[in-house]
Design a protein around this nucleic acid. Structure first.
Lengths: 225, 225
DNA sequence: TTAATAGTTCAATCTGGAATTAACAATGGA
DNA sequence: TCCATTGTTAATTCCAGATTGAACTATTAA
């Protein structure tokens, strides 16, 4: 066990590799070259680092033609990176002072919505009895819920076909409450991005809520911001 | 921000330092020499590593005579180390197979009880209306609760005098539910150790429930194991 | 078929930071 | 007082692991 923790820590601890993990935290998949540019190093070097991250099962890679898209291997990895980021000096103070644009307010976690907004939306879905929290930290989608999601063009039946868990809780490090993850969490984020209710900020996991988004959040989830 | 994450990751990532953090996770304070022995390195070298951990605000040190007692600086640090430990290969499988003795079942988190037992006790306290979950993830101690804690020799009024937050939630990485932390969480752990209801395993955060403990858990918290 | 792009692999080098050596400060007991 | 113990600091050495350079494969487009 001690040897294991040393190994994993050493893998995460290398500056370039930690930056890669940090970069991938926005749920996007990046190519090797893109990551090399972000980390300001050579493609060969990045390739070596990515190989180590893959070997430690921290990353997952999709081959598509001559491209290879790297992304985090699991929510646990995202969780660990988030936890490490809370140790950055001054981050707490920052989070308190500049609200509404920072990552504690509205951000992505892995591939779904997190932060205050993510938690509020999830709570709203539960309050409206669209979701029910079950054992094992899974959510059941109620009959009403299925109607609701279909009404905003998220096909639950289609999501059920996927291998991935449909809806489960994910702990939020800033709010310390649950937010929605799983296939439904991802679908909801995709939908909101696609409808331009929210926009991803470049090189950050922070998310901006558009004016259109404010209205939709009020109408659909009773959230007034 | 990117530079910051690299720095913190590099501090945590060094094998000896990660082992120190891992060791301190059992909430005990260790001296420099003890840590050097655990990590199988020289006192000078350990001293250098401890200085770096201190400088990064990951550790806290108490001077007592010629001894210096090192412990984790905050629950955030414990949380990050726990999160990293979930990335160790096979840990999930292990946790499932050898139950009742491993750290997911019963362990300490920083300075209070965690794992399945920690969560169950907390839920029991809430169900019996001894604790009430409030906003900001704090617990209120009810009048009945105060009587209960006093009856098992935990002086709530005394705990109130302390600067520390009395009772708040702490997220459990294995159970993914809340358990009790804060001054009350610490007092409860101390009390249970002192009464020999539970015992700390050496070099581990795992905790053993004694026979006496089983009986007390059933009587006080309606927990049958 | 050729050229360009994306990405990896392997050997050779280089270097930051850990480990070592030595000296020193502070506490407490005899 | 002396000396053993705990612990730090400062200077030097050393090495694991990152970086670099060159050669290679695979895919796409012209």
């Amino acid at each position: 066990m001690e040897i294991q923790i040393k190994k994993i820590a050493a893998i995460i601890g290398e500056p370039i590799r930690s930056l890669v993990l940090w970069t991938l935290l926005d749920s996007r998949a990046y190519t090797s070259l893109e990551l090399a540019i972000v980390a300001e190093t050579s493609p060969q070097n990045m390739s070596m680092h990515l190989a180590k991250l893959l070997e430690a099962n921290l990353l997952h890679v999709d081959k598509q033609g001559r491209h290879r898209y790297y992304r985090l291997a699991s929510a646990e990895v995202a969780f660990a990176v988030e936890a490490i980021s809370t140790l950055i000096p001054d981050i707490k103070r920052k989070n308190i002072t500049d609200n509404n644009t920072d990552v504690t307010y509205c951000r992505t976690c892995y591939d779904h919505l997190a932060g205050k907004i993510g938690v509020l939306i999830t709570e709203s879905l539960v309050n409206k009895n669209f979701l029910q929290l079950k054992a094992n930290n899974h959510y059941d989608i109620t009959a009403e819920g299925e109607l609701f999601f279909n009404s905003i063009d998220i096909d639950i039946e289609n999501l059920r076909q996927k291998k991935r868990i449909l809806a489960k809780t994910c702990l939020d490090w800033s709010e310390r409450k649950y937010h929605l993850s799983g296939a439904l969490g991802q679908a909801l984020l995709d939908k909101m991005l696609h409808e331009d209710l929210i926009r991803k900020k470049k090189n950050s996991r922070a998310i901006i809520i558009t004016h259109k988004g404010e209205i939709a959040l009020r109408e659909r989830f009773d959230l007034k911001l």
